[in-house]
Design a protein around this nucleic acid. Structure first.
Lengths: 210, 210
DNA sequence: AAGAGATTTAATCAGGTGATTAAAATTATT
DNA sequence: AATAATTTTAATCACCTGATTAAATCTCTT
């Protein structure tokens, strides 16, 4: 029986396999990807994939966990910053997201699909860094502003949904949108970059007129 | 060799199988559903599924085609109506969509996932009722209003994206949203019903302030 | 009751897929 | 060069899954 390889020394090949797996999983989903696809995509062979990660499911879990951690960590970093205003936070969130999504366009559809396919299993993974709502700095700021009547008393969940929707959904619907409108990938990205400035303005408009 | 059954007379069982297949496909996706799942869900057995529909893929294609047709047909009915104004069309679209999505919450994620997984194959199905953009009544009305400076000269694609995003995305992200916020299915639906009135107001706000 | 059509049973098939293994080959380390 | 670690090869397993088939059973109509 061979011994688990020194992971520190092999970070490169292990990383390569994980990167390949990430690509295949995100483009085809868990059920549709075969371990052999990952082997082919990574340039290594099937035996080595299982040698490093034991099973398809374990490899998937690692990748999904890293995605969720990265996602939540980066959002929390912005949302919990005491130095920025509410409007700055919204701008930063949108800008940060769109840049990330232009690099990884099929990430949200992948994550949302897998959560939908297996909500119970992924609920555990989602619970890891559960911060109490009241402790989030953005929430405090929002409450202060509504108390001072500077912001209208809308359910902030609606505003959150609107920010996330207008930012993320175009990427989720991108294949369909491009099919129906005939615009190219580059034109689409240009539109998304425009939205980095537009969405905060729109959010502002809907907040101040409610 | 048996003969294809009289479909007209058996509309009920054929419909039952299709309904079961629709449920399983939309909840787990094409790759993750087994023909045996559909058999179990329908109450009939594996042999009969294949007897009626020949293969898993043919059954899937039929269901997906019906979804897309229903979707596009209903949208076109609203968007091409010469009797309603631009604002009325937007309100009708949103209202119609939200009612439909409350009944079929995991429809959009399913459709978008499968299009993403197989864009080339589904592009053919999407081409069936391709109406020239200039012939759509809503587009004509929009152009008139921008020409008359009643509407600002924003790329209407942005507005379209915003309407679709704010309407559809909450349903796509519903499992994640409910997990993070802790709200129930009923509370979620109530929020969505609120949005039938709110989204048109928001859209109006972002149009008039641009 | 007879007969036609609908559905089930049960068995089978071929191919795909996740996973494991031992030995050989390659590469890196000393 | 010798040794250790890494990767490949190739074969194999057990299981799953889509699909087919023939005969048996059931259901309904007439």
């Amino acid at each position: 029986m061979k011994i688990q390889p020194e992971i520190e020394l092999n970070a490169t090949t292990e990383e390569k396999i994980k990167e390949a797996a990430r690509r295949v999983f995100t483009s085809k989903g868990y059920a549709a990807t075969r371990t052999r696809d990952i082997a082919e995509e990574s340039g290594y062979n099937l035996a080595l994939i299982n040698y490093y990660f034991r099973s398809k499911e374990k490899l998937f879990d690692i990748i999904m966990l890293e995605h969720l951690q990265l996602f939540i960590h980066s959002v929390m970093g912005i949302v919990n910053d005491p130095e920025t205003s509410v409007h700055e936070k919204i701008e930063l969130l949108i800008s940060h997201y769109i840049d990330m999504l232009i690099k990884n366009p099929d990430l949200p559809l992948f994550v949302l699909s897998e959560i939908n396919a297996n909500p119970v299993k992924l609920a555990a993974k989602l619970g890891f860094g559960h911060v109490e709502r009241g402790n989030i700095y953005l929430v405090k700021q929002w409450k202060e502003l509504t108390a001072a009547k500077i912001l209208p008393n809308v359910n902030p969940l609606h505003i959150l949904m609107n920010v996330l929707s207008m930012t993320i959904f175009p990427f989720v619907a991108s294949p369909l949108l491009r099919n129906r409108t005939g615009i190219s990938q580059e034109e689409f990205n240009k539109l998304m970059l425009e939205r980095k400035k537009l969405i905060p303005v729109w959010i502002n408009a809907m907040i101040t007129t409610s």
